[in-house]
Amino acid sequence: MEDVDPKKLVRALVVVSTRLTRAFRRLIGNESELVTLRALAVVEQYQPVRVGHFAQGYLSSQPAATKLLARLEDEGLVVRETSPTDRRASQFSLTDLGRVRLAKYRTIMTEQMVPYFEGLSAEDRLRVHRALGLVGEYLHNEHPVDRDEGVDNEAFGTPGDDGVPVLPGTITDELTDGEAASTTDTTDNGKGKQERR
């Protein structure tokens, strides 16, 4: 049975994800909207999310995360609530408007990308689907964001209707305001995991 070097797989995944991110960047166009899209995806993935955990998931400093969440709150895209386990801490969740905004951009991305995958054979689509499921499962199990008391662990990546984990932040991991890890950071520890800051 043939095999592929894991390092080769990781390098290919980094290259493909970078190209995919650039394609989405061209589709959305507005840099501020790209930042908003990625931030909303991170909130959705971990909600209700505290600022520190958002910063880890977004790969930013805590002050930058605080500022970004405040902007999203001002725009009515997220809502701030007091943590039920720590009255001194705040946690954030998407509002209906935030969910609509996120869904809008995902629809744009999907509609633009579907023709490429329609051109694949049924067998190739199944292979891609299986590969995405394996990568999604790995990211779900090995994600660098801490899980502590008071945080709903079910929020750390849940399966979609088809059983493939939904990873809302993944496709836009480079769409930040300059604080994202570089593609080098994603492989520096030899395990394909992003480094924490």
Rank of each mutant, 00 (worst) to 15 (best):
R38K: 11
G119N: 05
R106N: 14
R26Y: 05
T107E: 13
H53M: 11
A12I: 07
F24C: 04
A23P: 00
V78Y: 10
R80V: 11
E142C: 00
R130N: 10
S121G: 15
L126Y: 10
E75F: 06
H129V: 03
V43L: 04
R38N: 10
E111C: 10
M1Y: 06
V51W: 00
E111F: 08
G150D: 03
T187C: 07
L175H: 07
D74Y: 04
R11K: 02
D185M: 10
L175W: 02
T184K: 11
G29N: 03
V164I: 13
R25V: 08
P159G: 06
T85H: 15
G192L: 06
D86N: 15
M1T: 13
R99M: 03
G150C: 05
Y116M: 07
E44F: 07
R11Y: 03
K8Y: 01
G190R: 05
F54W: 04
V14L: 14
Q47A: 12
A12D: 15
V78A: 12
L27A: 10
S17T: 11
G163N: 07
E111R: 14
R50E: 12
A39S: 15
E31Q: 14
D173G: 07
T95H: 06
V114K: 04
F117D: 05
Y58K: 15
S32W: 07
I171H: 11
T85Q: 13
F117T: 07
I28T: 02
P159R: 09
H140I: 09
R88S: 12
E75A: 13
E111M: 14
P144S: 09
Y116L: 13
D96Q: 08
S61R: 08
T36Q: 08
T85S: 14
L139R: 04
V164D: 08
E142Q: 01
R71Q: 08
T186E: 05
S182Q: 01
L68D: 00
I28P: 00
P168C: 08
L139S: 02
L102K: 10
Y46M: 09
D161G: 14
A89G: 00
M109Y: 07
E33K: 07
S182I: 00
V4W: 01
L40E: 07
K7L: 06
D173V: 11
V128F: 13
R38S: 13
G190I: 09
E111N: 14
L72R: 04
L13I: 11
G76N: 12
A39E: 03
T66Y: 12
R11W: 04
E149S: 01
A103P: 04
S32I: 06
L175R: 01
L167K: 02
R130S: 05
Y58A: 15
F156E: 05
G163S: 06
V166P: 03
V43T: 11
A65W: 02
Q47M: 00
L59C: 09
K191N: 08
S61P: 01
V15M: 10
A64C: 01
P159V: 12
D5F: 04
R25A: 12
T170I: 02
M1W: 01
Y105D: 12
E44H: 03
Y138D: 00
R197F: 01
V135S: 02
P115Y: 04
L94K: 11
L72T: 10
A39N: 10
A39D: 11
V114R: 06
R106P: 08
Q91L: 11
H140D: 01
G190N: 06
R125E: 14
F24N: 04
N189V: 01
D148Q: 13
